[in-house]
């Protein structure tokens, strides 16, 4: 077992690509679930809207990154409208059903050969946004001893975490405003809010749109980081990774999704690399687990973590017990 590799890759996973992408997706889910009580189980669909919108605009129409990203966000807004319209008047579980189905449908559409001229089919789109790394002002890597980052990684981290911080500030401002108060009230009891003259359905729509936009930003950052996009990156577990990250860090608090995403990817990477090390060093016999199966363990951990948190610690690792106690009424 090479512990330095395990620690290095764990630390790296906590601050690079996935941590950023899923922090953004989870910030979006936090608006939905944490503040409004909406169950969006199709965040992957919003991420796909952002990623593919950007990717298509750049590779097919030759747009630059800025307008292309904007196009991706516009797509996510349209998606939110389309999903919200039939479901937001109804009970929370209908939204869950429709969103999970929609995200899966989106994945199948972009994967299908029928639209592959535009979406690249199962291969996805490549060569997206070269300008992103071309404009990298950082010209040397950073070596911190345990972990080191290339200049490319550093550039992505600067931009990615910059976007995350921006989204957190936005969330902070919004949830402390009267607007945020309405959302939190809807989370508690929407009839009460209705009785006070607020158009609850419309607020839920606003929440769905905003959270979906954050999700789209996550998809955009993913696309820029890897300069490509593949349809299967937006399969259902993607949404639940983000959901687990959110619950882990604490839903309904500004830092929750960000801390949660870092922790989540730390845990996933740690087990992943540890298992692979153990297999490589024959600590785990191959009849019990091989390399492919080691890659599947992350899903089991994510799902188990989500279920366990919802049962035993809904407030997340750092949440407030006092608030959860109020649920029992």
């Amino acid at each position: 077992m090479n512990w330095s590799i395990i620690i290095e890759s764990t630390l790296e996973a906590m601050v690079t690509k996935n941590a950023v992408v899923f922090a953004l997706a989870a910030i979006g889910l936090n608006i939905h679930y944490g503040y409004t009580g909406l169950l969006n189980f199709g965040q992957a669909g919003f991420m796909a809207a952002g990623a593919y919108g950007t990717g298509i605009a750049i590779t097919q129409w030759g747009w630059t990154i800025g307008p292309a990203a904007l196009f991706g966000i516009v797509l996510s807004v349209l998606l939110a409208f389309f999903l919200g319209l039939p479901t937001l008047r109804l009970r929370a579980d209908y939204l869950a059903i429709v969103t999970i189905a929609a995200a899966e449908i989106i994945r199948r559409i972009v994967k299908s050969t029928q639209y592959s001229e535009v979406t690249g089919g199962s291969g996805g789109l490549n060569g997206i946004g070269r300008g992103f790394y071309d404009n990298n002002p950082i010209d040397s890597g950073l070596d911190l001893g345990i972990v080191s980052f290339s200049e490319r990684e550093l550039w992505f981290m600067v931009v990615g975490w910059g976007v995350v911080v921006l989204c957190m500030v936005l969330t902070y401002l919004l949830v402390r405003s009267p607007w945020g108060r309405v959302l939190k009230a809807i989370r508690e009891d929407e009839d009460a809010v209705r009785s006070l003259g607020k158009n609850v359905t419309w607020y839920k729509m606003q929440s769905l749109i905003l959270g979906g936009m954050f999700g789209a930003l996550g998809g955009i950052m993913l696309t820029l980081e890897q300069q490509s996009v593949q349809p299967d990156q937006f399969f259902t577990p993607t949404t639940f990774f983000a959901f687990t990250a959110l619950i882990l860090g604490g839903a309904g608090r500004v830092f929750g999704p960000v801390v949660g995403s870092m922790l989540f990817w730390g845990i996933i990477q740690f087990t992943d690399v540890s298992l692979r090390q153990a297999i490589a060093n024959d600590h785990i016999p191959t009849w019990l687990m091989d390399g492919v199966q080691a890659g599947q363990v992350r899903f089991i951990i994510a799902g188990g973590l989500l279920a366990a948190l919802m049962i035993f610690r809904q407030q997340g690792l750092f949440g407030n017990k006092r608030e959860v106690a109020l649920d029992d009424h």
């Binding site: 108060r181 939190k184 989370r187 508690e188 009460a192 649920d327 009424h329």
Partner: peptide, 8 residues
């Protein structure tokens, strides 16, 4: 059934 918003 009172609808006081508990967590507010």
């Amino acid at each position: 059934l009172t609808k006081a918003l508990s967590k507010l």
